[in-house]
Nucleic acid binder design. Structure first.
Lengths: 336, 336
DNA sequence: GTGAAAGCGCTAACAC
DNA sequence: GTGTTAGCGCTTTCAC
């Protein structure tokens, strides 16, 4: 087993002290150029790299960011993770990723674990269960330890920290407005049970717009378990006289398109469809889905930027902020 | 800034030595029960947790696995990552995830970085560029350092390490055989340029089966840039008289379905379609795609299991193995 | 210019 | 039973 070379070994081989070698590697002007050269030469020869663990122990900085996500099979979070990783690695940070599977207890466990692993900071999207239970002691503990947190998308007002969110309410208002503007009058909203905070906001937006527009009616369909998604939507479409559907997540919209096709409804002639989250399904449905893009990559990247900035430029009285990333309506073929 | 409590502080407050405290926390029988109790009590009070950095420095184990992926927006790798994370966390390992974006130089950089961060082991899927360039010095370096590596899906014979792969050749043979068995005779294979090793195997499988079956013809379409995917496929379908398509990745198959719909071809009556990778698109296309499932989660999970097992039960003369995860053909509605 | 020494927080062999 | 000591690999202050 080849062991990684240490300062000690370099020092010994060069007949120098450890501290001299250490300083030489940092090109300390205290050290003679000649020594510096000798040291660098041998260090290069052995491909010396300082042991990150030891450096971290000394500096109490690990150049590591803990990323806590509720899901990863959801394309939205995969995109966000991508944005985070890109941005973090740009600044020399590694990310350790944990997936809570929407579970509160897993979230607590991971946050504590990461904290005791001395990550420099956290990027978090809350799990659904955490949002329901409204318990945030694990984050309060971080704050007491003075570990910076940036939350994105799934956030809570109860925790004072930087946040990067999407204005879901405005987004759904725009989507509905677009439907109304293109002549739709009998609008259905299909929502999944999950995603409380976010879904609630989206629904609020919907209601505001429909309330303001005379002659526009609204029907809601709440979906249960994903097993029966398709049948529920199919039945809903059959039994309701509607001319537009807003799916509060991507799957709901995609399935709506498929079931309409199955029932022989023409899209967008008979029914216009808009979805949330501009993922794979939206791009590869037929017809292609008009969709609210939440710019997940940007969200993640921005969260990472804010955190890195906070880590690299520590300030005593930091004032937290909430940043809103604009959504955009990507108009494709499922609307008029 | 509250500092995390250390052994030293506990020792001081209890008027004990650091080592006594350390041993007490481990319930060392050397220590009197009374002391043990006192120590535990105070440790609990302060919610003491050993500093992972210090423990790692001492033990040269970080309980961390470096995961190097070529992509994350690809559902296959997202699923694999999920499997890895689940399995790793089960055994108390954290994962630090790096995404090479199919770039060789990024891969090298990340592997070195992770190695100098003292990850205990690696789980890797090679980047496309690395596979093309056929350069693996960065892994040879790991082997010299005696750091275990498990590769999955995108592997190379040039590196001796544990591997978890899918038998792509058998998988595509089965897919084609299924098409033949259900009456298809004029089969098209649509392949993307990328994914060399894997795509090559899949194509080999295809050719073997078509060669063995008299009366079965094969046409190939190689796709360029994703921008023009759809047009290319549409034109191809228009100008070729075929009754079945095997898409060598999920997108190719999904787009084939959509373009067939557009052209008014009935699926599966006019054209049968099979895809690779059982992702979101396959489940939410219309009609639903018959697809080769590579069980990405299992792949990832198995890779993690093998690595963890190797890490937790170190043996001197370890013999590497290659494990093949069986694929399965998930028959849905796009085939007869 | 170079080196000795302390210390980051922990473990473990070895006193007493 | 408890404490002392050395050491993991590094940085940094201070002495020479």
């Amino acid at each position: 087993m080849r062991k990684k070379v240490t300062l000690k070994q370099l020092a010994k081989e060069l007949n120098l002290s450890i501290s001299t070698v250490s300083k030489s590697l940092k090109n300390d002007p205290e050290i003679s150029q000649k020594t510096i050269n000798r040291v660098h030469e041998l260090a290069d020869f052995y491909n010396y790299k300082p042991n990150a663990l030891a450096v971290s122990l000394k500096s109490s900085k690990t150049k590591t960011i803990g990323v806590v996500l509720p899901e990863i099979l959801n394309h939205f979070f995969a995109k966000a993770l991508f944005g985070i990783e890109q941005e973090a690695s740009k600044s020399g940070y590694k990310i350790v990723t944990c997936i809570t599977n929407e579970s509160y207890s897993k979230e607590v466990e991971y946050v504590e674990m990461l904290n005791y692993s001395s990550v420099d900071g956290f990027i978090v999207a809350l799990s659904q269960e955490t949002q329901v239970l409204n318990k945030f002691d694990h984050y309060q503990a971080l704050k007491r330890d003075n570990v910076p947190i940036v939350m994105f998308d799934r956030v809570s007002e109860e925790i004072e920290c930087d946040k990067v969110i999407v204005d879901d309410k405005v987004a759904s208002k725009n989507a509905i407005q677009y439907l109304v503007d293109t002549g739709c009058r009998k609008i259905a909203v299909i929502k999944t049970i999950g995603d409380l905070s976010v879904a609630k906001l989206r629904l609020e937006g919907v209601k505001e717009v429909t309330a303001q527009n005379n002659g526009v009616s609204l029907v809601e369909l709440s979906l249960g378990d994903s097993e029966s998604f398709e049948n529920e939507i199919e039945n809903f479409l059959k039994t309701n006289d509607i001319d537009a559907v807003l799916g509060l997540d991507e799957t709901a919209a995609a399935v709506t398109i498929n079931m309409s096709l199955k029932l022989g409804y023409k899209i967008p002639e008979d029914i216009s469809v808009i979805g949330f989250t501009d993922g794979l399904l939206s791009k590869h449905s037929y017809p292609k889905l008009t969709t609210v893009s939440q710019h997940a990559e940007d969200l993640g990247a921005r969260a990472a930027q804010i955190l890195v900035n906070q880590l690299d430029n520590f300030t005593e009285n930091y004032k937290t902020k909430t940043e809103i990333i604009k959504t955009s309506l990507i108009v494709r073929d499922s609307t008029n």
